[in-house]
Design a protein around this nucleic acid. Structure first.
Lengths: 350, 350
DNA sequence: CTGAAAGCGCTTACAG
DNA sequence: CTGAAAGCGCTTACAG
């Protein structure tokens, strides 16, 4: 630690104002309850002294003494500020920053977390987690053990995105993908589609299950029959083959990157989009288009998700842990459909 | 403060291992100097106990006891994570995140700082600044008083961008705009330009002065004569008028947004770019183009700037303040010219 | 109304 | 080699 000029402490303020350090603390924290009643005169004297000095409370000491810090942690399972991740994290981080500014909190990014198995670990020997009053968790693929431990330790946190851990009830704010997926299926049916291909990554996240659930339901009810195609390593050739095999008039892709890959592969295979086959993404499509056409998919209120997550986190921080069970800690927000231009009526080719 | 389950402390580890709490601290911090020599046996016992527990040192306590925190502050004078600011801050933040990850530091964003006069204030009653070992300052328009106070308090910090405060020697990492500007002027001269217009915002930041200095020098030496045009509120009409008045074959804009505004106004005025007049930006141009043409300007190593800034900050943190004068704390990195397609030989119209 | 004291969890001289 | 003690700056019972 580089030696700095000593900082002003309450003790010095006390000496200047001619009171005890306790009194300074009382004044600073507006402790004016039944047992303590500080006359306006001394209160004023103390305030004067503080005003004249450059006094700033030491956050570490406050924290150690058991107060909160006005610091919220932000943990991402991948680098959050890289150009590639901005597409996903950008709106969330922006929402978090704005909400934090609003409530007067600083944001502690746990960039130091060592990487294991390709993702960062929240708990490690030197984690500064406890310096924060609470923590926001971001990432497609969270660690179940982390979540469990956070719950067990009663550390206030909120996950962005739905989590249905069997081991613990995780507070989250997410998007209602079930309704969105359902809406897009209806839309396809309205347009005459009866046979589709569902291209997905074969992941097992809650949001992946949400989408798949509706796809399966539509298939089983006979509303719209989907042939599922799992894709690995961005190799979407199987999906193209499934389309070429005939029958399908529409492709649903699990997310927008996948949709773009599919579109590219279709073009390479000489299959015309959307004349020969329609395409829709079950993810956020803003800013994405296919050959100049607005991609059909969802619009998701990510900034709002972030704001609500911070909101909920604040509530958890302010509530004693034993009262948490009474709180509504799982929140899904509605998105909207982007009808777009890549999902068109069957037979548009004619 | 919501009551949590109590966290494991050194005292408990000590009890388990059957040693004193001091010894636990020693083992944890590898204090094995001349006065302390802990036998491998007890050391092992302590490590076992730690391993079995979920012990994590309380960062607030460490900090209060005078150690460093592995937390670096990030202060931006405007919101850093908004879509608009990403163009500028994005590469810097990315560089900072990567560097922080490398050195094992967390990043504390001072989002809580209240806004005064349209910009955030670093020092306020509840600043958590001191929780960080040091701080990176970002922003076009920093507050001179903030800088002075940081220097006076000997708080380790590094500004991104050159700062020449008269009141204090500010550590910084920036880009060498003098050489870049000079290079672009030479280039214009090579292409036959003798008469230009310099569109600027009339600001007084160091980098603004750097650019203007070269413009003025070229004008005075007669190499390339510039007519300066100050622009307010993005109203570049005066610049267009200056061009229309004749004589000038090239426009230099202080930054890329300005260049884009000028290009737009020229097009509206029916002045053909670059056939009638050339255009160059004295700023980063990556990702910007004018009517499909690569804009002439600079490429600046912003990620590297960020990395070097963090580097320097680490050095400051690790060095006692009284030895800072011996350090090289002002660093300018080289950018490269983007020759682009909007600065063309005089008389290309023919 | 106000201050002396204990305590938060840690580190570091200082004695054994 | 190891532990008891002081101290970091703050808050909060607890006595006056």
């Amino acid at each position: 630690m580089s030696p700095k000029t000593r900082n002003v402490t309450q003790k010095e303020i006390a000496r200047i104002a001619g009171v005890s350090q306790t009194t300074v603390s009382m004044v600073l924290n507006d402790r004016d309850g039944s047992n303590v009643r500080i006359p306006a005169a001394t209160r004023e004297r103390v305030k004067q002294a503080i005003e004249q000095s450059t006094y700033v409370a030491d956050p570490a000491a406050r924290r150690l003494a058991g107060l909160d810090n006005q610091i919220l942690g932000v943990f991402t399972y991948e680098p959050a500020l890289s150009p590639e991740s901005m597409d996903f994290y950008g709106p969330l981080l922006n929402g978090i920053e704005r909400a934090a500014e609003e409530v007067g909190c600083d944001l502690l990014f746990f960039t130091s977390s060592p990487v294991e198995d390709g993702r960062r670990t929240l708990f490690h020997r030197k984690t500064r987690l406890r310096l924060a009053d609470g923590c926001i968790l971001l990432g497609q693929d969270m660690d179940g053990d982390d979540l469990k431990r956070l719950v067990d330790e009663r550390f206030p946190f909120v996950a962005v995105g739905r989590r249905d851990e069997t081991t613990a009830r995780v507070p989250y704010v997410g998007i209602d993908y079930v309704t969105l997926t359902d809406g897009l299926i209806r839309r396809a049916v309205e347009l005459g589609h009866r046979e589709g291909v569902y291209v997905h990554r074969d992941g097992d996240s809650p949001t992946a299950r949400d989408r798949r659930g509706q796809i399966v339901a539509a298939t089983e009810s006979g509303t719209l029959h989907f042939t599922p195609v799992a894709v690995a390593d961005d190799d979407v050739s199987a999906a193209v083959a499934a389309v070429a095999a005939g029958g399908a008039t529409v492709i649903f892709a699990e997310d927008t990157f996948l949709a773009e890959d599919v579109a590219f592969a279709l073009a390479a295979a000489g299959i015309d989009l959307p004349r020969s086959v329609s395409l829709a993404s079950l993810g956020e499509v803003r800013g994405h288009s296919i050959g100049g056409r607005v991609l059909t998919g969802f619009q998701t209120p990510r900034q709002q998700v972030a704001a609500e997550a911070l909101n909920l986190l604040q509530k958890l921080v302010a509530t004693p842990a034993d009262e948490w069970p009474g709180l509504d800690t799982q929140l899904l927000l509605d998105g909207t459909l982007e009808l777009g231009e890549t999902l068109v009526p069957v037979g548009s080719a004619s």
